[in-house]
Design a protein around this nucleic acid. Structure first.
Lengths: 332, 332
DNA sequence: GCCTCCGATGTTATCGGTATCATAGCGGTG
DNA sequence: CACCGCTATGATACCGATAACATCGGAGGC
């Protein structure tokens, strides 16, 4: 910067002004400085800038994974909004582990992000402490709840699972089994299980044991196929399976096809997330659409709003949508 | 940091050493300092650290999009390797536009990333200049070619398309039409078209006109369905369609089902990328598997290798795999 | 017991910007 | 024509850390 200044015959301060507050510099000087910048191929150093300015222009986000286009969609939405506001996005994946999340939060805070976007509401106590004492704006996504760290944008996994279960019952299934992922560190899984149970109870039915896929099982169709076989073993009267992810549900549909089980006739199958695979499998998959991209966008808007001190809703519950497709049309 | 130092009864320098070179500090002092750090909830400021140290500990990546789990998988692989090495990842999406890419490169360079990961080999002249004069390590991904800016990890889109076209011909199809995306700013699309053409010529057949979906068309199954109808209109003798993406191919398969066209009997359909949708659609989709995750990993390893001055291959051509499934088993 | 050497810690300068206040130069006013 | 006030630019200090060199004290060798 000093060299640019020398070349333009001004001081660093004027160069700095040309870059940050061009209106405060005479058009003539501004032109000379711009020319010098271009001639030298000068690229300002924001590390230094952020250090004095006190804002870094970065937002950090932690997602469980970028695969399967769940959270990746959220990141795309977030990135879109942030980049319009001139903010950059740092992403890390926690592999669904809250202890990893905590250490990532710690490490990301060292970069002084202007805000943090987290997935879910479940964090280690250490992480919550850290966030609170640090006072950085935080947006939690993918769930809504009572005790957010700061801002939230999500939908109710409980209600979504409740609605889907009710839908299955309405379609004529009685013995609906919910197939869940591990829920210790994942309130989304836990809330879905609760939604399932209350829906069963609301219908005067006893909930059946929730089948939980093991932690080691990857998010793959085969895992769903295995779950299907296990459930038919353990709960032979099951006439519908509601999976916590379309990936599993689709695996189950394919397994049914192989095993000669009619879907939706013999057994109904529903998923969660509304991934593309559910639209193209046959029979097409009944599922819950979740606003993945939109949550990212909203999170971005909340952050931009907060940083510019514009009034913005800091707690947004977005809707989900039950999408009924062939896999649960019992009558069909 | 000064406060921590005061509390521990040492100077900032010692605190800094405890954090960066703990082995250079007496265990006793180290313990006292660590205690002070914990007591104050002190989180070091890497903006400042990077400023002096000259390395930022960040890697920036630009992908066309995070949707559809193509490049998101690459980012997941990259992020895995980088985080193990203590590097953070900044991501932006360019929406498949090289002009956007250039301005993102410029803006990202202001953060002084230790390396840059780009998608593809096509960049604006301005971008190439910038990268060269800046001298930051660069990894280009998703294609291999002769004039990389710096390092490359990819596979040959030309050969992949050639292999798939040959496969279709071997399966007994004759009039193979390639359905491509816009190729002006995308050498992957261009090379695939070339691979298709030479494969046709190698078989002694005249290539048929490549159908190009419009720029405005989103990457959605419907776009593939539309392309199918257009090709059947314009090239009625087409007996196989090779799509540049599984998303389009799957849309075409579904459209065929609706229109009563038998796949693979009346028409063969092949895709590209090996997405999950191709595995679950019926008939299952013949496609090219590309090493999306692995390219990310390798890119990460190259960067880590370069930064630690460890000898690492700086030019890696990974393989693709033709996956033959039902949609092109003409005899079946 | 004295000297040397080495390891632990401190001092100083600097990284590349920007906030803040100072100053100079200008036009407008009565 | 002297004075005022405003605007464009400069000088200085500082953001929070670290590299490089200086210093101090104790262990080991003779």
């Amino acid at each position: 910067m000093a060299e640019v200044a020398a070349l333009a015959g001004v001081t660093k301060m004027t160069v700095s002004r040309v870059l940050r507050h061009p209106e405060k510099v005479t058009p003539a000087t501004r032109a000379r400085v711009s020319e010098a910048i271009a001639a030298m191929g000068y690229v300002p150093n924001r590390l230094a800038g952020s250090l004095t300015a006190g804002v870094s222009g970065m937002v950090a986000a932690i997602v469980p994974t970028l695969r399967h286009s769940l959270f990746a969609d959220t990141m795309e939405g977030l990135s879109d909004v942030l980049s319009e506001a001139g903010l950059d996005l740092i992403v890390s994946s926690s592999s669904y582990r809250t202890d990893v999340e905590e250490s990532q939060i710690r490490s990301l805070l060292e970069r002084r992000p202007d805000a943090l976007v987290l997935t879910g509401l479940t964090h280690t106590p250490g992480a919550r402490d850290l966030l609170r004492t640090f006072g950085v704006p935080v947006v939690e996504t993918w769930e809504t709840g009572d005790e957010p760290v700061d801002m939230v944008v999500g939908y109710s996994n409980r209600e979504a699972a409740h609605a889907m279960t009710s839908q299955l019952l309405k379609a004529g299934y009685r013995n609906v089994v919910f197939v869940n992922g591990p829920s210790e560190n994942n309130e989304r899984a836990r809330h879905r299980a609760e939604g399932y149970r209350t829906a069963m109870e609301d219908a005067g039915l006893g909930p059946l044991p929730v089948h939980v896929v093991r932690d080691e099982d990857a998010i793959l169709p085969e895992t769903g196929a295995r779950a299907l076989r296990a459930v038919r073993d353990q709960t032979p009267r099951a006439d519908a399976l509601f999976f916590t992810s379309d990936v599993f549900a689709v695996g189950a549909i394919l397994a049914c096809r192989d095993m000669g089980i009619a879907v939706p006739g013999d057994i109904g199958i529903a998923g969660f997330h509304d991934l593309e695979i559910g639209r193209v499998v046959s029979p097409t998959l009944t599922t819950v659409h979740v606003p993945a991209l939109e949550m990212g966008r909203r999170a971005g808007e909340m952050i931009v709003g907060r940083l510019s001190a514009k009034p913005t809703a800091e707690r947004q519950e977005l809707g989900f949508t039950i999408i009924e497709r062939q896999s649960t049309r019992k009558s069909a």
